Amino acid sequence: MKPVFKALPTDEVRALQAGGADAYGRTPERRVSDGDGVPCRHCLKNVDAEEAYLVLAYRPFPALQPYAETGPIFLHAEPCERARESDILPELFGRTAAYIVRGYDADDRIVYGTGAVVPTADIPERAGELLARGDIAYLHMRSAKNNCYQCRIERG
C-alpha cells in the first residue's frame, strides 16, 4: 500500500492567511522567520529568513471530540502553492531524524497501538503497513519532540 502525503487544504489556509480565526477562535499571530525551523504546513517548505509567517492553533479533525488534538502550526503569511500530493516523503521532513506516525479510524479516533516514533527514512514503509489495515482510515505525522501536526497520510 503506497501512502500519500497531504498538506493542509488550500481553502482552509487562504482563510487563515486572510485573518480568519484559528481553532481557538483567535486571529493567527504574524511573525518574521529567522529561517530555521518554521515549516509551512501548506507548501511543506521552510519559511525563509525575513519572510512573514503565521503561528496559530490548528485542529486537523472535523469536529470536537476527545481525540481531536489541537496544537500550534506555521503557515506562510502570504499565499503559497500547496505541496503536490505524493507517495514520496516531502523533502522538508528529511531534516529531522524521526516523527510520530499514528493511525486514526473512520470516526477520527486514535487506533491504539499504532502510534510510534519512526525514523524518517522508515516513514513511507511504516505508513504503508498501517494503511493496509482495515481499521485505519488515515494517519497523522507529528513532531516527535513537540507533537505538532505535520501532515496527513492517506492511501494512494
Rank of each mutant, 00 (worst) to 15 (best):
Lys145Ala: 13
Gln65Val: 06
Glu69Gly: 09
Gly19Asn: 08
Ala57Glu: 14
Pro60Arg: 00
Leu54Arg: 07
Cys148Ser: 13
Tyr58Gln: 00
Val111Cys: 02
Gly134Arg: 07
Gly25Glu: 01
Lys6Ala: 15
Ile136Pro: 02
Gly25Pro: 04
Thr114Gln: 02
Asp105Val: 05
Leu75Ala: 09
Ser143Trp: 03
Glu69Ala: 12
Ala137Ser: 13
Arg84Pro: 11
Ala132His: 03
Glu69Tyr: 11
Gly19Pro: 09
Asp108Ser: 11
Pro28Ser: 06
Glu85Cys: 04
Lys145Trp: 09
Glu29Asp: 15
Leu56His: 05
Gln17Lys: 13
Ile110Met: 05
Val101Ser: 08
Glu91Tyr: 00
Val117Ile: 14
Asn147Phe: 11
Ala137Met: 06
Cys80Val: 11
Leu92Ala: 00
Glu51Asn: 11
Thr10Leu: 15
Cys148Asn: 10
Leu92Arg: 04
Ala21Ser: 15
Pro9Trp: 13
Arg102Val: 11
Lys6Ser: 13
Asp108Leu: 01
Val13Phe: 15
Ile73Thr: 09
Pro124Tyr: 00
His76Trp: 11
Asp34Arg: 15
Asp87Glu: 11
Glu78Ile: 06
Gly113Cys: 02
Val4Pro: 05
Asn147Gln: 14
Cys80Lys: 09
Arg152Ala: 15
Asp36Leu: 10
Ile153Asp: 00
Gly94Ser: 08
Gly25Ile: 04
Glu125Ser: 14
Pro72Leu: 12
Glu129Pro: 02
Ile153His: 03
Met141Ser: 03
Arg155Ala: 12
Tyr104Phe: 10
Ala127Gln: 04
Gly94Leu: 14
Leu64Cys: 04
Glu81His: 13
Arg109Ile: 01
Lys2Cys: 07
Asp107Leu: 12
Val47Phe: 05
Ile88Arg: 14
Glu78Phe: 09
Tyr53Lys: 01
Leu92His: 02
Pro66Leu: 00
Pro9Arg: 15
Thr70Asn: 07
Asp22Ala: 06
Leu44Lys: 07
Leu54Ala: 07
Asn146Val: 15
Arg59Cys: 12
Ala18Val: 09
Gly25Ala: 05
Ala137Gly: 08
Asn146Gln: 13
Glu29Pro: 13
His76Leu: 10
Glu91His: 09
Thr120Leu: 00
Cys40Asp: 06
Ala137Lys: 08
Asp87Ile: 01
Val47His: 03
Ala137Leu: 04
Asp108Asn: 14
Asp107Cys: 09
Val118Gly: 00
Cys148Val: 07
Ile100Pro: 05
Asp105Cys: 08
Arg142Asn: 11
Val111Ala: 04
Arg142Asp: 10
Ala23Ser: 00
Gly103Arg: 04
His42Ala: 01
His140Met: 10
Gly94Val: 05
Leu54Trp: 04
Gly113Asn: 04
Gly19Leu: 07
Arg82Ala: 13
Ala49Ile: 06
Met1Lys: 12
Pro66Ser: 03
Phe74Ala: 15
Ser33Met: 04
Gly19His: 07
Cys80Thr: 10
Thr120Ala: 06
